[in-house]
Every structure is written in structure tokens, then in C-alpha cells.
Design a protein around this nucleic acid. Structure first.
Lengths: 99, 99
DNA sequence: TCCCTTCATGCGCATCTGCGCATATGCAGG
DNA sequence: CCTGCATATGCGCAGATGCGCATGAAGGGA
């Protein structure tokens, strides 16, 4: 079940976009493409991938499309995303055994 | 930093192999290929990908090569792997906020 | 209605990925 | 040595992926 989700996250621009969206607020494509130095079509397509993976949701707001983390993300997926973003930021995880 | 690691995990056979290795013990390629219904070359190559990603280590033992989880995996990577495997197993994560 | 901004998408291309097939390599036993 | 088992790897191929370019579609304002 996790493979498509992981594949969606396993790309630099998409992971950076998720880091930006992890502040909990909405971000339009134009903001994301500026902050991540991506062309418009590239950014748009990456957001489609994240949307199809169920990681983000979008909302029309006048001529903008606002993206945010999917608030209905399954708990397991949410935990995975949180852990990945923390690791990407270089944060220290809490201790625990693997098995 | 996480993208190459996530890309390594984001493939069905490799994720299943990691689930088997997560019992903490060593497994030879012949065992993995049988349990995962994979051909020999396919299994061998997948294990190379996991090894190059730093997720597993291998050891020669007579004519076998024993694979196990990399005991020197960075804590952040270890936490990510643990969370992904738990999610793949359908386990419930502990609660926490994302940002 | 016309124009501008924002975003999505069809198309073609270069590259990457995963695979099977065949072959090479490493090791043990006779 | 020679044979057999376990594993790695060169090769070529089919499909997937990421990209730029151009265009379409949706909405706002004069």
C-alpha cells in the first residue's frame, strides 16, 4: 500500500513542496514555483502527482489554486510523512527499536 | 538527503525484502527470492539497490551472501524505515502533530 | 468584449528503471 | 580439476518518469 505514496514523495521538488506545505497553511502554485525555482508546468505536474497520491488537496480561489496537506490523510501515511519531513530537516528522531 | 533512500524503498519487492529483514536476523538471497517469488537476478539487483542506499549490509558466508539491515543506519533514516514498515503492516501510529 | 494572470495539459524527447536472458564469479566437495 | 550451488553482472528491451514548449481553460478587471 505504501509504494505509490513513497514514490510520490521520492522526488526532490515534491519533497520540498511538502516541506513548505507542512506549515499547515495553503500555498498557491505560483508561490511554490518561486520558492522552489521551478517552471510553472513542472510545478503544476508535481502537485498533481502529490494530489493523486492523496498527500495534498487543492481548492480554487479566484484565479489561484491553493494547495494544502490532505487533512484526511490516513494516520499511517501521516506518520510516515511527518517522519520523512523531520529527517529531511535533519531533526533527531525519538528512540525506539525497529522490529 | 532523503530522496535516494525513499526511492530505494519505493518499490514493491524491495519493501517486502525490508519487511523480512526487519526481524533483525540475516537472510540469504535464495531465501528472499523464494519468499518473495522473484527470479535470482531480480532479487540480487534489488538487494544491490538497498545496499547502495545504505539500508542493508551484506556478508559472505561460504557460498551464500547474508543480508541484514544496516546496523549503522543514521537515526533519522532508521526512524523513517521503521515508520514505513509499520504503516505497510497496517499498524497504528502514535499520535502527534505534523509541523 | 478584450486582456492579463494563474494554472492545467497535450506532445515529443531524453533519461531512468525494472526485467529476463545469458554468462561470469566465488565457494565447497569429490 | 571438475561439478554444482549461490550470487553478481553485462546486455538489450519495454515501459515509466521528468522535462520544456506551446496551448487551452478559468477567473478577474477595465
Amino acid at each position: 500500500m505504501m509504494v505509490p505514496i513513497l514514490a510520490a514523495i521520492a522526488e526532490h521538488t515534491r519533497l520540498q513542496a511538502l516541506l513548505l506545505l507542512a506549515d499547515g497553511s495553503e500555498h498557491c502554485v505560483c508561490e511554490l514555483m518561486q520558492k522552489l525555482d521551478a517552471t510553472q508546468s513542472r510545478m503544476s505536474r508535481h502537485m498533481q502527482v502529490l494530489r493523486q497520491a492523496g498527500l495534498v488537496v487543492d481548492r480554487r480561489d479566484a484565479q489561484w489554486v491553493r494547495y494544502r496537506l490532505n487533512p484526511d490523510m490516513p494516520p499511517g501515511v501521516y506518520a510516515v510523512l511527518k517522519t520523512i519531513l523531520a529527517a529531511e530537516r535533519g531533526e533527531r528522531p525519538e528512540e525506539r527499536k525497529i522490529a
